[in-house]
Structures are given as structure tokens and as C-alpha cells.
């Protein structure tokens, strides 16, 4: 894809096209597939995303380990009962949907890893909620996913999208930044404003560690997806108002890469630091690793 957001945005501006057009053209060129095929592949992903949000809010989904589940359903029920959320009608539904996808993921349901399984809730949570509120078509959402993909590809190239390599900032941070660029485009912002939304989102999530209890994609991943959706909303509103990041987007991505490299390995998906190292985190890990020994797996 592209080595920098500057290159992507400059190209979009020079051609007078939205970022998704540049991203689709690049995918067609790279893959050798025709535009229709590439577009259909992305459309399929949107359908799986929608299915996973609906599954997660319509019933309490329990994870395989049993240490998480049901949060999305609980919030959704409360909203349906008429509770007035202080996050407002949009963000409250976005965070419920974001958690829904991650709960479905930890229950061994089907999801789209965007960019990873652990951060899979943010894009569907944000985009499907904007569709509900503003009436965007599925075609517009598919385009928005291409915009998000081009941002994610730049982050993957310059930094990382893996918690094991860069901490949670690289997973939920990247997902939120991708969603922010896509949301700005949907709302009529310019490619430059999409870039600013990426910068602002990532800045607000720098340094976030990956500290999953028992090494499972559950605690704190489910709620971090809600937080990622919220950070995305904050950045989109700022970028749409013309507020710019003092540090340019590519430099923010590079800062995230350096922070990731310097981050202690205990904070990079090893389940040895942060929340995983708390007494409760340790107790849950013992319960999962040893309390339920591998008899169920068969004789050792």
C-alpha cells in the first residue's frame, strides 16, 4: 500500500478523489483482481461485521474461559429501556457494538479481525452506529472500510498492529485511528482531515499496554474496544471542526513505533504485567491454567 499517510493524502488531494478511491485502485493493482471482486470481498467483511454486532447485543455472549461476557448485551438492554447515557445516543451504541464484537470473538464466534481479533470491535462499532444515525448506505460503508485499510496498512508498515510487538496502542490505537479516518470521510471531511483524525486518535492512545489476564483476548480487551470507539469519536469531532494535530500524522505513528520498541516485554501480550499481574488477574489465570487442568483435553 503506502509508506506514509502524507503520500496517501497528497495523492488523494492531487487527484481530487476520496482516500477510498486511491485505496481501491491500489488493491486492484497489487492483487491483480478486478475492482468488482475486490469490492465484493470487502462487502462480505461488512456483512460479517454486522452479524457479529447483532449477535453480541441481542444475547449475553459468554467467553470460552468464563471470565468475561454479557457486557454489550447489558448496556444495550439499558439503552433499550430508555436510559439516557451521558455519552449520548451515538457513542453509547457504538461502545455497546464494539464490546459485542469482542465478546463474540472470545466466545469463538465469527468476526473480522480489524486489524486484529483483539481490536475487532472498534470499526464495526463506529461505522455501523454512524450508518444507523446518518443513513449511510452499505456501499458507503464498504468504501469507508477501504479508507480504514489504507490507514492500517501505513501503520503496519511504519509501526505495528500487533500487541506482542507494540502493546495495546498498536491494536486498539490502530483500530481507532483507522475508524477515525473512515468516519471523517463518511461525514464529508477532506483527506487531510482524515489524516488529522488519525493523528489525534493515536496521540490520545500512545503508551497503552497490552496486559491481558491469563493471556486471553478478554480482560481488558473487551472494554478497551469501547474506549477505542470513544477516542475515535473525540478525534473525529475535533478534526471535523478543523482542529489539527501539532505533530503530523506520520510522526505520531513513528512515535508509537518507538514507544512500542521501548516498551517492557511484560506489557506486550505476555500476561506478565499490568492487569495480568494484579492479584485478581493472577487468581483468574491460576483458575484457568491450573484450576481446570488439561483432563478435559485428554490424558497428559
Amino acid at each position: 500500500m503506502f509508506d506514509s499517510l502524507a503520500e496517501l493524502i497528497t495523492l488523494a488531494e492531487a487527484q481530487g478523489q476520496p482516500i477510498h478511491e486511491i485505496a481501491i485502485a491500489r488493491e486492484v493493482e497489487q492483487s491483480g483482481r478486478d475492482r468488482q471482486t475486490v469490492w465484493e470481498l470487502m462487502h462480505n467483511r461488512l456483512l460479517v461485521m454486522r452479524q457479529s454486532t447483532e449477535e453480541g447485543v441481542s444475547r449475553p455472549v459468554e467467553s470460552l474461559s468464563g471470565i468475561s461476557g454479557g457486557a454489550a448485551w447489558r448496556l444495550w438492554q439499558r439503552l433499550e429501556e430508555g436510559y439516557q447515557p451521558i455519552t449520548g445516543p451515538l457513542l453509547s451504541r457504538a461502545i455497546a457494538r464494539a464490546m459485542a464484537v469482542n465478546e463474540v470473538n472470545s466466545g469463538m464466534g465469527c468476526i473480522v479481525a480489524t486489524p486484529t481479533a483483539g481490536s475487532a470491535g472498534i470499526l464495526p462499532g463506529v461505522l455501523l452506529t454512524l450508518q444507523e444515525a446518518y443513513g449511510f448506505s452499505d456501499a458507503q460503508l464498504v468504501n469507508a472500510l477501504f479508507t480504514a485499510s489504507s490507514v492500517g496498512a501505513v501503520i503496519a508498515r511504519r509501526a505495528s498492529i500487533s500487541g506482542a510487538a507494540g502493546g495495546c496502542q498498536a491494536e486498539t490505537g490502530s483500530a481507532a485511528a483507522m475508524a477515525a479516518a473512515a468516519a471523517v470521510e463518511l461525514l464529508g471531511g477532506t483527506p487531510r482531515q482524515s489524516g488529522q483524525a488519525v493523528a489525534i486518535t493515536l496521540k490520545n492512545m500512545l503508551g497503552l499496554v497490552c496486559d491481558p489476564v491469563a493471556g486471553l483476548v478478554e480482560v481488558p480487551c473487551v472494554k478497551r474496544n469501547a474506549a477505542g470507539a470513544a477516542q475515535c469519536f473525540i478525534a473525529v469531532d475535533m478534526a471535523m471542526a478543523g482542529i489539527e494535530s501539532v505533530i503530523p500524522p506520520d510522526e505520531v505513528i513513528d512515535a508509537m513505533a518507538r514507544i512500542g520498541r521501548l516498551m517492557d516485554p511484560r506489557f506486550k501480550e505476555t500476561a506478565e504485567g499490568g492487569l495480568a499481574a494484579t492479584p485478581t488477574g493472577q487468581r483468574l489465570a491460576q483458575m484457568i491454567w491450573q484450576g481446570k487442568p488439561p483432563e478435559e483435553l485428554g490424558p497428559a
Partner: peptide
């Protein structure tokens, strides 16, 4: 980046 479609 947007994918794979997978069971978690």
C-alpha cells in the same frame, strides 16, 4: 488489515 474473517 480488514480481515481475516475468522472464528475467535
Amino acid at each position: 488489515i480488514i480481515g481475516p474473517i475468522m472464528v475467535g
